[in-house]
Amino acid sequence: MTRLTCPFCGPRELREFEFHKTLPEPGSTPYARVYERVNRLDDSLEHWQHVQGCRGWLLVRRNPSSGAVLETVILGGGAQ
């Protein structure tokens, strides 16, 4: 489990971020988008917010079994 690198603020302690949810499968029904959760063991796509920093929303790819953070992308501003 390492730090989470906010693309804007740089590497920060994980306690500064809040997890929102794992992303639903693309194209799923409204029910599935809200209630179902994709539980991949080693490659989880998630939305987080850097609440104690720039308050930016991030797309984070993590390995929930090892705790490693694989990739972070800033969402706002039409970036992706």
């Binding site: 920060r12 302690e13 104690q52 920093g53």
Partner: peptide
């Protein structure tokens, strides 16, 4: 906070 880490490569930082 770890000021050095927070301000590394930056002049200003949003931090709690």
């Amino acid at each position: 906070v770890n000021v050095e880490a927070v301000l590394e490569g930056r002049e200003c930082a949003a931090i709690t």
